[in-house]
Structure formats: C-alpha cells, structure tokens
C-alpha cells in the first residue's frame, strides 16, 4: 500500500478523470459486452434445432382422397387435415358472409385458386392446441359440418373457420403448394 501511494500516477484530486478510471470503464465495458454476447448461444440453443427444422416440410399424395373424405398427415410433428370438399360443402362455406365471422375469411382465402375443393389446414385447435375431431371416418363433425374440438367445445365449419366456442381463430392454413395434380408439398 505504501509503495502504491509513493508511485502515484494519477492527477491530483479534484482535477477530473484519472487514467485509472478510463482503464476501469474500458475493462468493465469489454467484459460486459463479452458477457452479453455469451447470452446469444445460451438463449438460442433452446430454439428448434436443425433436425427439427429439417422435418418442417412434407409431401403427400392426395390422389386417393375421394370427395367428402379427409386424411390426417403429419407436418412439424403436428396433425394436418387434408380434406376433399364435396360441392355441397363448398356451397355451404360460400353461403356464409365472411364479415359476420369471428375470424373473417372466405373459402377462397383459405384454398388455392382452381383447387377450392382441397381444404388443407392444421389439425390444431387455435384455443389450446388439441386435435379437433371430424377428419377421421365416423368422427363427429360438429353442427357446422367441419370439425369439432372435444377439449373445450370449439366448432369449425366446412371451411375450418371458427363458428362457436372459445377458439379465437380459424384452423391455420399452413404454407403449401401443389407440386403436381396429385401431390401436395406442405411447408
């Protein structure tokens, strides 16, 4: 301590910033930035990993689905409903004025041009994520002829739009494209 006092390199007291203050601020700043930078890997390791993301597109052959039928496929480890609507179901969906709905969308908004019979939606209820009934053979379709979620009673119509119950949104339409007349690529 005595040595330190005798080799005093600082300016006299009361004359502003000492050289040591600069070193102090610089060192703490570098350490702080470095510390913050370590948060990036620590936080982003939690996000979906490359293999999970690699599974995020799927190709499905839809040639065997007759009008009025639906299948459940898997996209991002979640169910997808692919439904071949009948002319009557399409008419029912178009008979509703979209502006009166909770989540206003027309059937055309939810299908591809010229393919309005192919209704492709996630099979994930927008309330709390249960799988609605109505895609499988003999499952209850609810009073609007689409899907019915047994968990909390959300009812979807033939365009998979929310009509009744606690869910806030229509069943989500995932990104997809027709790679040929009979194959659809989801994701």
């Amino acid at each position: 301590m005595a040595d330190e006092a005798s080799i005093d390199t600082t300016v006299p007291a009361g004359e502003g910033v000492r050289r040591r203050d600069f070193i102090n601020v610089a060192a703490v700043s570098v350490a702080g930035v470095g510390g913050l930078a370590t948060l990036v890997p620590l936080i982003s390791q939690m996000s979906a990993s490359a293999d999970v993301l690699a599974e995020s597109s799927t190709e499905i052959d839809i040639s065997a689905i007759e009008p009025g039928q639906a299948i459940k496929a898997v996209f991002r480890k979640q169910p997808v409903f692919i439904r071949n609507l009948t002319q009557q179901e399409i008419a029912e969906a178009n008979a509703v004025n979209p502006t009166t709905l909770r989540d206003p969308q027309s059937l055309a908004d939810r299908t591809k041009p010229g393919k309005s019979n192919w209704l492709i939606t996630m099979g994930v209820c927008t309330h709390l994520g249960c799988v609605p009934l109505g895609a499988g053979q003999g499952e209850v379709k609810g009073e609007f002829g689409g899907y019915f979620c047994p968990c909390h009673g959300s009812v979807y119509d033939t365009a998979a739009r929310i009509r009744k119950g606690p869910a806030p949104k229509n069943l989500e339409v995932p990104p997809y494209e027709f790679t040929s007349a009979t194959v659809v690529k989801i994701g």
């Binding site: 936080i43 939690m46 996000s47 979906a48 999970v52 991002r76 480890k77 979640q78 994520g129």
Partner: peptide
C-alpha cells in the same frame, strides 16, 4: 417454439 425447441412437444 423457443420454450419447446420445436413446433409441438417432442
């Protein structure tokens, strides 16, 4: 998605 590390629990 961050909490689950994916799109649904896995």
């Amino acid at each position: 998605q961050w909490l689950l590390g994916g799109f649904s629990p896995d």
